[in-house]
Nucleic acid binder design. Structure first.
Length: 490
RNA sequence: CGGGGCGUAGCGCAGUCCGGCAGCGCGCCUGCUUUGGGGGCAGGAUGUCGCAGGUUCAAAUCCUGCCGCCCCGACCA
């Protein structure tokens, strides 16, 4: 009897479970520089699938990809007051290059609003040059004090969209539209039931007029910001003199937006769906959707492998991502555990008895085994993967609902944020928000909002409710006209 | 950046108190045998004991300094 190998149980130490799972599933490994990680092939394949889906959605909404440089003159970052205050503490700066000290230090981009603003000020002359609808897939660097793989790393991969518009209305519409794109991605591809809405003043992006966000609940009840879309107003336009001559002959500042989603979403997928056996990957993003495990003895190896090969070809023809695990040095039992750890949604077991009978055993990562005719699998498995996705989403949403409490007194609030989300009225005062954080470790995560025109809807009635009340902590009249989601956050 | 803990084979650890042959489990390699839920037997390889200096006949072990990692806290658009 071999010792059981696998991640630390979630109930014992959720944080350790997360770290173990990433290592054991070979998603990533620690790199030599503090806070940096190597994304290993299996993890990168997951990221590539995320990129592929999102990139298609960006293009479908009229955006084009471009690439702006990694190095940004320090002076650029200082042009927008809130921006510099927000990002200075975590900047990495190049002071020497080519063996000499640089005249002006170069910041390694923490985000690209400034350099894109600078370029736009050169490119934009007329209303005919608008809108600018750009996106870039790149890396950014933020020197965080405390890091965690995927969730907060010194360097991370993401995409950052940047748009410039002639009118405020158009820019605000873009902000909502892209939040809608992220919500669709989260719901329909990552199976993440996230709460769309707006950040409070205290939590918004440094330099934004307002920030919209998607907040998810992890299996330990903590919140994870999964994507953001910012309305930047004319803040960066003024800082970088981005103006255009409008149809009415007036010279005007443009209105800009930015929006981003990082590989942090991988952390969200891990902590939303994973269990004590390891990863559970949503089928639409999983690098491998179906793994075929051939089972054979000396005399049956050839027959079984041939049947496995034929099945793999059939499933590939249906567009499924399939892998046949014919590694000779491992037993079937080992392979079962191995692919469960790696979160593959469906497994097909194919042994001599099955080949003989023209059947196979299929097993869902989150369900029971069943026997099905081999000939049916090419129709059956795509349906099962759809159902798998739906079940992942449904159970995550149920989990979130079960751990979300509507609270009206501070004691209940404290209990709620120890376990999950608290829906509470708040006065909107930043000092009061800070006090709540000091007293409970919870922060205002999101003011739930809907933008029906862009498909941004809540998936829970409790989050749609509007109303007036008094602040959960200080008792002053509540702001926002609705309850705010508070939680401990990553 | 403050408090605590830990650095010994790829991973997890024992050995450190009380100086005296570098060990265990897993993994890895070879062969045989196995294969329907983490197989078995036999043989084998792998060490800058975090780094530097000191004490000593002798240092993983004692002393000094440094570095790194983890946890808690502060910080974290």
């Amino acid at each position: 009897m071999a010792k059981v190998k696998g991640p630390t149980p979630q109930s014992q130490d959720f944080s350790q479970w997360y770290l173990d799972t990433i290592q054991l599933a070979e998603l990533a490994d620690y790199a030599p520089v503090r806070g940096t990680i190597v994304v290993r092939p299996y993890g990168y394949a997951l990221w590539e699938n995320i990129q592929r889906v999102l990139d298609g959605m960006f293009k479908a909404t009229g955006h084009q990809n471009a690439y702006f440089p990694l190095f940004i003159p320090m002076s650029f970052l200082q042009k927008e007051a809130e921006h510099v205050e927000g990002f200075s503490p975590e900047l990495a700066v190049v002071t020497h290059a080519g063996g000499e000290e640089l005249e002006e230090p170069l910041a390694i981009r923490p985000t690209s609003e400034t350099i894109i603003g600078y370029m736009w000020s050169k490119w934009i002359r007329s209303w005919r040059d608008l809108p600018q609808l750009l996106n870039q897939w790149n890396n950014v660097v933020r020197w965080e004090k405390r890091t965690r793989p995927f969730l907060r790393t010194s360097e991370f991969l993401w995409q950052e969209g940047h748009t410039a518009h002639a009118t405020k209305e158009e820019a605000e519409e873009e902000t909502a539209r892209m939040l809608g794109v992220y919500l669709q991605f989260a719901r329909d591809y990552a199976a993440l039931p996230v709460i769309p809405g707006q950040k409070t003043e205290r939590e918004k992006f440094a330099g934004a007029v307002y920030t919209t966000t998607l907040e998810g609940m992890m299996k330990d009840g903590r919140a994870l910001q999964s994507a953001t879309s910012h309305f930047l107003g004319q803040n960066f336009a003024r800082a970088f003199e981005i103006t255009f001559q409008d149809k009415d002959l007036e010279e005007k500042y443009v209105w800009t937006t930015s929006w981003g989603l990082s590989w942090r979403i991988i952390g969200g997928i891990i902590m939303t769906h994973g269990d004590d056996k390891g990863l559970v990957l949503p089928p639409k993003l999983a690098p491998i959707q179906v793994v075929i495990v051939p089972i054979y003895k000396a005399g049956s190896k050839e027959r079984v492998l041939q049947a496995a090969g034929a099945l793999e070809a059939e499933l590939r023809e249906k567009g499924l991502r399939v892998f046949t695990d014919d590694r000779d040095q491992y037993t079937p039992g080992f392979k079962f555990h191995d692919w469960e750890l790696r979160g593959v949604p469906y497994r097909v077991e194919l042994g001599p008895r099955d080949v003989e009978a023209g059947t196979a055993v299929i097993k869902s990562r989150i369900g029971e085994k069943e026997t099905a005719p081999l000939a049916d699998l090419k129709e059956l498995l795509p349906k099962r993967l759809e159902a798998f996705h739906d079940e992942l989403f449904a159970r995550a949403r149920e989990f979130r609902k079960a751990r979300t409490r509507v609270v009206d007194d501070y004691q209940a609030f404290k209990e709620a944020v120890a376990e999950g989300f608290a829906l509470a009225y708040h006065c909107g005062d930043a000092a009061c928000e800070r006090a709540i954080q000091e007293e409970t470790k919870a922060t205002a995560r999101v003011i739930p909002l809907e933008f029906p025109a862009h498909g941004v809807l809540q998936d829970d009635e409790a989050l749609k409710a509007t109303g007036e009340g008094t602040c959960i902590r200080c008792g002053r009249p509540a702001a926002y006209g609705r309850r705010v989601v508070f939680a401990r956050a990553y």
